Structure formats: C-alpha cells, structure tokens
Amino acid sequence: MNIKDFQEQLIEYSKEIGIDKIGFTTADPFIQLKERLKLQKKLNYQSGFESDDVDARTDAKKILSEAQSIISIALAYPNKMAGAPQSKKGETRGIFCRSSWGEDYHRVLKRKLVELEAYILLHLPNSKVQSMVDTGELVDRAVAERAGIGWSGKNCSIITPEFGSYVYLGEIITSIPFSPSTPIEDQCGECTKCIDVCPTGAIVGPGQLNAKHCVSFLTQTKEMIPLEFRERIGNRIYGCDSCQTICPKNKGLDFHLHEEMEPDPETVKPLLRSLLNVSNREFKTKYGYLSGSWRGKNPIQRNAIIALAHFKDESAVDELKQLVKQDPRPVIRGTAVWAISKIEGEKSKSYLENCLLTENDDIVMEEIKNAIDNF
C-alpha cells in the first residue's frame, strides 16, 4: 500500500473515531529536549514522577528499535462546568483541576490509540506499533510540538490554535515511514501572564518549570507540603489550572466533544468536610474513575484540610481536632494542627500546648511548635 495514501486514510479514520487532532513526526532523537532534561535534573527541577531514563525519554528507538515515525494525537477537554456548586459558610468546597474532570484521560486516550493501532495493523499487518499516554517514557509535549499539534507555551503546555491548551496528548511509535507534519510557530510573543500568575513562582522562565514548586505537583505529593506553599494552594485539592485559565489563547474556548470527559459537579467540587473521614472503599467508589485519584486518598485529604484553613471554616474545627487525636497518619495530624492554628488563631494556643504533651511524632511536634511560635 502507498504510505502517503494510507496516511491520508489514517487521518480521516482518526476523525471518524473522535480524535480531535493528529500529527506525525520522525523517530529522530529529541536532541534539544535531551539537553533541557539534563539541565532540569542538574537544577533539581524534576518532579520525580517522570522516568529517570533520559535516553528513553528522548529517543523512540530505545523503546521500539524499528521506529521510523511517531503519531501524535490530541483530544480537547472542557474547561467550563454547568451547575457548579458554590462554597458557602459551613459547606466549603474543594476543586479538582480540569484535567481530572470526567473519566481518567489515560483510559480515554488509550482507547483511541488502541483503535488507531488496530486500524494500522489491519491495513499494514507487518508494521510495528507501540502507544503511550503520559506515563510512557517519551515526553508527550515534545512529540506533539514536533508533530505540529501545537507550540510549546511559556506555561510548558502545548497550545493548539483550535483548542488552546485544553488538550490531552498521546502518541504511537511506529515502524511506518509517515511524512512528518509541519510544526507550528510559537505564538506566545511577549506575553508572560502565565509566569506572572503562577501561585508559587514555579514557572521560573519561559518554558522552564521547577516542578517541585508547582501546585499541581505539591497536591500530588504524600508528604507535608512545605509551609511556604500551603496558603498558596487555596482550595485546590488536586492540580492547578492558573497558568491555563490566564492564557489569552484559551479565552472564549470551551469544548464539550467527548461525553466521558464531562464532569460531575458534586464529584469534582466536593464538600471538603466529606473528605476528612472518607474510607478507602468510599474514596475508590466515588473518585476512583478520576485521573486525580491515582495517588490515593491521603494527599486529597491533606489538601482538603489545607483548603478548610484557606476558608477559615470554623465548622470543621471539631473534626480537625478529632483527626489530631485519632488519625494514625502524621501528615494528616500535622496538617490538621496547622489548619486549626490558621482557623482559630491564638485562641487555639492552649489546645496546641496540650497536644504537645501527648504527641510523640517529630513531624507533628514540629508543626505544633511552629504554630505556637507564630502566635
């Protein structure tokens, strides 16, 4: 079969199965990316969630030896929610970021990639294919940029002319020598709004992120969130959208093209107090289908406690004190101590002094002492 004709057929098929954008690039190594990743590692800017194998992250042939091309796909996701519940006194709510609305995007994209793979193998049965979404070795954004899906914005997101940066990305490495697409020229210009608005200053320069300071990363860690960042997290219980919502290229864009991506308002804007004592089973039942559930309930509960402090929600103090008294997890107890001190202020001093008499974990004791010293 003529590869050029098949490439056109594949593009048409991708539209039929609901892929919003498709592009192609060679399997050549990503030389510049490799240098950037080495610099990130040297500066200790990596999150730790990514693969440590820089060669595999920048060379498709390390993953599939017969690789000749990479197919990049994008699916647009919604950024506005109908019927979103609002926080009110005694009923404060957290928020999952937009990339955790609806069904876990890894599953959604994987299904599309599997359909593409099947179509390829039906017509070219001797070809080799290997797909990945986010958790694979290759850097999705680098592939998408070179495949003409969009340009890499200063906020480190791929920005497409059609859908802005609200797109999920995935790719297929293949042995088929497809013609590469034309990359899109950077259209950010002199704009620095995403850098200016970043809550923690994690975007240290155009296209350079200190992932360890990024709110999205911080909400996914399992340890105590550093004191300097807690108040900047606000009511975010998973992820952060600030550098996207401020972007002029996203203004007026909102796409509802995939039913499985539509958010359930009560799930993605949950009542914070409902999260404090949720069991593992309850968490999996209600939130397990979201991409934001991948780290389990512990980080979400910790973030909910921080959000309650953000709102100074006095109705939660008794429950927070119960956590300090009974919860076996030092991170939860320590965060609850901090939240109580923020909500009640100096009024909580005698309570915290009493806690110091019974607490024996270093993390929690340090939180208690810091809170008392700050009064």
Rank of each mutant, 00 (worst) to 15 (best):
283 F>L: 04
287 Y>D: 02
316 A>S: 15
302 R>V: 07
306 I>T: 11
286 K>H: 12
308 L>C: 10
280 N>Q: 09
317 V>R: 14
300 I>V: 15
308 L>P: 06
316 A>I: 09
289 Y>V: 03
323 L>N: 00
320 L>Y: 12
288 G>T: 07
297 K>L: 02
317 V>K: 11
286 K>M: 09
311 F>H: 13
285 T>I: 09
286 K>T: 14
284 K>P: 00
308 L>I: 14
310 H>R: 08
319 E>C: 08
279 S>Q: 13
275 L>S: 11
296 G>F: 00
287 Y>R: 05
313 D>Y: 07
289 Y>R: 10
285 T>Q: 12
319 E>T: 13
303 N>V: 00
279 S>F: 12
296 G>H: 03
277 N>C: 05
292 G>H: 07
311 F>E: 12
303 N>M: 00
303 N>R: 02
314 E>M: 13
319 E>G: 08
309 A>K: 07
290 L>G: 07
298 N>Q: 02
299 P>N: 02
299 P>L: 01
319 E>A: 11
299 P>G: 02
309 A>P: 07
320 L>D: 13
316 A>F: 08
297 K>H: 01
326 Q>I: 14
291 S>Q: 05
291 S>W: 04
305 I>H: 05
283 F>E: 06
303 N>A: 00
296 G>C: 09
301 Q>F: 00
275 L>R: 12
288 G>K: 11
297 K>P: 00
279 S>M: 14
294 W>V: 08
313 D>L: 09
309 A>H: 05
312 K>P: 01
306 I>P: 03
295 R>S: 08
315 S>K: 14
320 L>F: 14
293 S>Y: 07
309 A>C: 10
289 Y>E: 07
300 I>C: 07
320 L>V: 15
289 Y>Q: 06
307 A>G: 15
312 K>S: 07
280 N>M: 03
320 L>R: 13
305 I>D: 00
305 I>Y: 02
307 A>F: 14
290 L>T: 10
311 F>P: 10
314 E>L: 10
281 R>I: 14
281 R>M: 14
290 L>I: 09
324 V>D: 02
322 Q>S: 14
284 K>A: 10
313 D>Q: 12
283 F>T: 03
292 G>A: 06
283 F>H: 04
288 G>R: 12
292 G>K: 04
284 K>I: 00
291 S>T: 02
310 H>T: 04
